[in-house]
Design a binder for these strands. Structure first.
Lengths: 167, 167
DNA sequence: TTTTAATTTCAAATATTATTGAAAGTTTAA
DNA sequence: TTAAACTTTCAATAATATTTGAAATTAAAA
């Protein structure tokens, strides 16, 4: 396999993986492209490489910036904007975990807490509902805290975690 | 909040959460419904509760069964099939983690391994590509192993993990 | 200023994914 | 067997999400 083929395969796999996890293809592919690029890329560069429109590129770049994994960069003497990806895989994972937690997991945990606190009336239906939603709440809350603590350990969190966990 | 409201809120939140993680709404909602139901439900029951068609119900039940988190159950003397959810939240998490790992993460790891093993030609482009895809490979592979080990610990994995990790 | 380059926005078009419903298939019982 | 009860399949339809492209906006240069 030569470079161009490998690169295309990487970009399309990354896009497909994103899709199965609720992240749109263009967003994942733009990220993939920037992640492997040794130099900052302009919007034109990205549009051309991925064959997508200006609007699409602009919107998804903004999302990536909102997620904290892509940054704008200005080239001296150049008017147009360039973009670079977060290059540290650890920081990338940290950022993605943080954002998904904040946007999706934590709101769901709040709902679980709410609904599991209704007054029971002694029927099997309500008792089971309360019991099961409480269990889910506990699991989600614990897993979420665990994730955030792992991910917030300053350096090499994953290595440290593995060492602690299996020694 | 009374039961009916809480129940609807739980089911719709679960559906919405599923959606943001690449799981279709009907599948997530059927699961939610079964998970809080003290008794097995028939296809009719599910269709009626969620207001979805027979075909949709049938297809998504099959998927849930494929994922290993819903089981068929036969009621003595009854011809039609009933369905129950995995009730143990720990087992539920284990199963979901296992399946997502197997279906999506592991194939991606294999691709990362492949593409990061191309021959470098000394240019910045290929060197960066190899370096970055290798880093991603290492991260994904380690995180995947960690996830599987956590999730395969016999009982109370999450509690054990937390204890180990933060003591 | 005014002009030009670059970016963003957003309604419309397209593509993708989910859902329906009825026909075909299966299984049990008569 | 045949009929009835139930489930699955899948082409058609609907719903949702993504993408486009051109007009509007913003920002830098002349």
């Amino acid at each position: 396999m030569e470079f161009k083929e490998a690169k295309n395969k990487f970009i399309s796999t990354w896009g497909a993986l994103g899709t199965t996890w609720g992240i749109n293809k263009a967003m994942a592919q733009i990220h993939a492209l920037l992640f492997i690029s040794p130099d900052p890329l302009s919007m034109e560069d990205i549009m051309e490489e991925l064959g997508i429109s200006r609007g699409n590129t602009s919107m998804n770049l903004r999302q990536l910036i909102d997620w904290g994994i892509v940054y704008k960069e200005n080239m001296p003497g150049e008017r147009k904007e360039y973009f670079v990806s977060e290059k540290d895989v650890t920081e990338l994972a940290r950022q993605v975990a943080k954002e998904r937690s904040r946007r999706e997991i934590e709101p769901s945990i709040r709902v679980l807490s709410e609904v599991s606190n209704i007054e029971g009336d002694g029927t099997a239906k309500t008792e089971e509902f309360i019991k099961k939603t409480k269990e889910l709440y506990d699991l989600a809350d614990t897993a979420n805290s665990l994730l955030l603590r792992m991910v917030n350990q300053e350096q090499n969190w994953i290595t440290k975690t593995v060492i602690k966990l299996f020694k």
